Simulated assay, not measured.
Amino acid sequence: MADADGQPEGSLAAKVDHLFRTVRPRPGREYSFDEVAETIKARGGPTISATYVWQLRRGLRDNPTKRHLEALAGFFGVPPAYFFDDAVTEMIDSELALLIALRNSSVRRMALRASGLSAKSLSALTAMVERAREIEGLPEGPDGETGP
C-alpha cells in the first residue's frame, strides 16, 4: 500500500510526508523545506539543507543520520522513535488525527460541550455520531473504532 504521494506505507518518506501534511504553522499552509532546514539550524541542530529535506520527503534519500532524524522529529514535535517504531508511529498518528479534527471549530465546540458528561451520555453521543457518519456515507473514525 502507498501514501498520497506514492511512497510505500511505513517508509521514511511516507512518515516525513505525513508530518509535513499534518503538522502545519497555520491552516492551509505546510512548512517549506527552507523553514524546516533554517529552524533546525537555528535550534543548534545538525546542518541540513532544504534540498536534503525535500529528498527525504520524496524518498530520493532514505538513510539519514541519527542526528538528522532527531532534528526532524524535534522540529515536528514527535519523538525520534516515530521513524523507527511502528507502534509509536501509530500512536502519534492517532494523536495527530485528533489535532486535525480539533482544528475544525464545530468539532472543537462539540468536544468542549461534551466535557463533564457521564460515561453513559458520552456513549450515547458516540453512537449518534457513528450513526450520522453511516447515514452520510463517511468511513469509520480515524482510529478505526466504531460505536460506543
Rank of each mutant, 00 (worst) to 15 (best):
H18S: 03
A97W: 07
I92D: 04
G116T: 05
V107H: 01
V107Y: 00
A13V: 05
D86L: 10
P25C: 00
S32K: 00
V36H: 01
A50D: 09
T39L: 08
L96A: 09
M128D: 11
E90F: 03
V129Y: 15
N63A: 07
T47H: 13
E30C: 09
V88M: 15
E90K: 14
F84S: 07
G6F: 05
R103Y: 04
A119I: 07
F20Q: 02
E134Y: 11
G141Q: 08
S105G: 09
R67T: 05
E134N: 11
G144K: 07
W54D: 10
R29D: 02
S115D: 13
Y52L: 08
L138T: 04
P8N: 12
R61S: 14
T89F: 14
P148C: 12
E95R: 15
Y52P: 05
V88L: 13
T47G: 09
V107W: 00
P79H: 08
G44V: 06
T22G: 00
R109W: 02
G6I: 06
R131T: 04
H18R: 13
V36A: 10
R108V: 01
N63K: 14
R109M: 05
A42R: 15
L99M: 11
R58E: 11
S105E: 15
R103F: 03
L72A: 08
D34T: 04
Y31M: 03
V53N: 01
L138H: 12
P25E: 01
I135R: 15
S32E: 02
R21V: 01
L98A: 05
K120D: 11
L102M: 14
T22I: 01
N104D: 15
P27D: 12
E134M: 10
R61K: 11
R24D: 01
G74P: 06
S115M: 12
S123W: 07
D3L: 05
E70N: 11
A124V: 09
V36Y: 01
L138Y: 07
M128I: 08
